[in-house]
Design a protein around this nucleic acid. Structure first.
Lengths: 383, 383
DNA sequence: CCAGTTCCTTGCAATATAGAAATAAGACAT
DNA sequence: ATGTCTTATTTCTATATTGCAAGGAACTGG
């Protein structure tokens, strides 16, 4: 409670708010900018000058043909004014990506983790940073992990790494002279979708990820919901099918059992009595194999039920799907849509479900996005 | 979307914020007040003076024994400085309650609705206002209905009343010279719990109501979630038990089928082959009747599953239960707790589930609370 | 080249705010 | 009783921020 309120009360200078708004809402007319920020045009001029001089913002010279009067020069951020590094840690690898201020991907690299020792992990992160560095320094490094994170610095609990109370940010900052921000992976992804991705412009939406596990994040009132519970993976074992298979925790038909890559593979392997890859499962389904079709169709239905439950209980109208385990939608999107419809009030507006097809790299971009967000608060004033 | 942003950008003067903070956080030291509002003590003095002179705020002379130095005089609102009327409309009655600034109950009255015609309903509301009036004028009237409301003025859709696009606020204001605020009933109740009830001090919590139906409201980041979907009763038909009875819409084991008063009565009546009241069902269960016990225990389990689903997907740690249909918890609270535990991550903090026992009248109080909230924005500045 | 239009900036007055100093209100020791 | 100590609150004043209104600036079309 108190920490949440403290976070909420984090002071943001008018300059920061301006920079933020321009960053999120692309090239934007000073007119609408002034309205959004509740400031006069005069104040806007004064606030924008140091940011323009400092090179963080630029004026576009976009000609709207046929417009009368002096043409407007919308403000935009110079996206390459800063460079960020995003790192996603899994149980066995670290994936890194460089991004500009808009979190769009630059160079990427990946390294296996030799162990789960903090020192080893830090070494890998430092090596990735060195490998991807160019003449431009990183303004900040974002690191995302599956698990609970406190204060954007300490990993309280990360099952895949076996960590509890590991001061990751301090350890990395000791090696690299760059601010480090640590965040839960789903929270980071939700933040990225909110500012830069498919959630741009929505005040309320949910993010559901499907891959090795099922992740769930929420943006409400234009803020990512980031309670201590957010890192627990609460959408991971949501009951979806009373007749479904068991997950490794013994839940029958939970989201993990119905949707994840390992579980889908396992179901098909058991039925076919031979090993198959996830890609093979998708190909089998395309070519009409009944086992693959049954498993993937059940996954589609389960995902639809999950989406409907999320929309009903979190009261969102928009859902962003992400992660590398969404391939089954090619086959069973209609099953998903039908399940959503069945569980929604017929008077409710139809749900807007969009798919982020960028796959695994979006996790690392999410980490970078958090670094960008935290940096924006200080960037503007430090110019 | 745009309306939401407009609402968010509603300007609040520092005075209003001050009054608000004092109203919500009871008697409060100027010290902590200054910190909460991010203002200096000097500014606080300047802001508080007109409110103290106007009688809206008072200084308490509470002595903390053993304290050194000049004793502090915490600020508090004079709760009886204003009077409000809250009206809850159902399909057949209007229930009204007067409240002070803290939404605590004064006098109450109830009248049947002769019809669903707007004119008739307005007449009933006006009569209730006249009946409950005293020498002090109502600062505002809040009206809550089950259904969708737009702009706090128009009832877009209210199934129980058969209304679509009814300008209720205008109609009542035409008869009484008092500002009228209309709101969805669950949104209003959530707002009341947030400012004045069991949700006080929590930034995120959910409200689940059980009565003739099942209602669901959400407070996130210290704001009630009030999208157009909020009025649809999205928690009303949430699937909870694949083997449960059917609701009137044909959902098997949904929250309505498992939890509402009519459905519980119906289940017991069918099994016993005779009519029973809800109170009788509770008494039967207390005295060990197996049918009543089975139905109520299933209700407890279903409620537990609903609570767990809400906590998992809305990411809240606190749940407030309200409404007149919670009697079964006397018998099946343990079933509820067990179901919650089963569906929660074992590493998650235990859920805080509290019960608002004030029954049906809290609906009308909720309506008053919304009137209070909307009025607070202008009260301070109008002094 | 000039009027018309819209956009952006500058000068100035009003307002709001924080910090420092002053005052107030008690407790406690003498 | 009186003075001192401590903390709370207010007053005073310098500073900063803001919006308004007036004044360029940039472009179109006659």
């Amino acid at each position: 409670m108190s920490s949440l309120e403290a976070a909420e009360r984090r002071y943001r200078s008018p300059s920061s708010e301006l920079a933020r708004e321009v960053l999120i809402h692309g090239p934007i007319l000073r007119n609408v900018l002034a309205q959004r920020l509740g400031l006069s045009l005069a104040t806007l001029t004064r606030l924008a000058r140091p940011l323009l001089d400092g090179g963080l913002l630029v004026e576009m010279t976009e000609q709207l043909d046929g417009a009368l009067g002096r043409p407007a020069k919308p403000l935009d951020v110079r996206a390459d004014a800063r460079q960020f590094l995003g790192v996603k840690l899994t149980g066995d690898t670290a994936v890194a990506v460089t991004t500009d201020l808009r979190a769009s991907e630059g160079r990427r690299a990946e390294r296996p983790l030799p162990s789960h020792d903090l020192a080893d992990v830090v070494t890998v992160i430092v090596e990735l940073a060195r490998e991807l560095a160019n003449e431009q320094e990183f303004s900040a490094i974002g690191i995302s992990v599956g698990g609970q994170v406190s204060d954007n610095r300490v990993v309280d609990r990360a099952p895949f790494l076996g960590w509890r109370g590991v001061p990751l940010a301090d350890a990395v900052e000791a090696q690299l002279d760059v601010p480090v921000i640590v965040e839960n992976d789903v929270v980071a992804l939700a933040a990225a979708e909110h500012w830069f991705g498919l959630g741009r412009g929505f005040s309320n939406f949910a993010v559901i990820t499907v891959g090795a596990g099922v992740g769930y994040g929420l943006v409400m009132h234009d803020q990512v919901v980031s309670t201590s519970e957010a890192g627990l993976g609460l959408g991971g074992h949501f009951p979806l099918d009373p007749n479904g298979p068991l997950c490794f925790l013994g839940h029958r038909g939970c989201s993990t059992a119905m949707l994840t890559i390992p579980s889908i593979r396992a179901q098909v392997e058991v039925a076919l009595a031979r090993p198959v890859t996830y890609t093979e499962v998708l190909e089998l389904a395309e070519s009409g194999n009944p086992v693959a079709l049954a498993v993937l169709s059940a996954a589609g239905t389960a995902l639809g039920r999950l989406i409907a439950a999320v929309a009903n209980l979190a009261m969102v109208e928009h859902v962003v799907l992400a992660g590398e385990g969404l391939g089954f939608l090619a086959v069973s999107r209609s099953a998903m849509d039908a399940a959503i419809l069945a569980d929604r009030d017929p008077d409710a507006r139809p749900l807007d479900v969009v798919t982020d097809a960028s796959g695994f790299i979006s996790w690392a971009q999410g980490a970078a996005a958090v670094a960008i967000q935290r940096t924006m608060d200080t960037l503007a004033t430090s110019l």
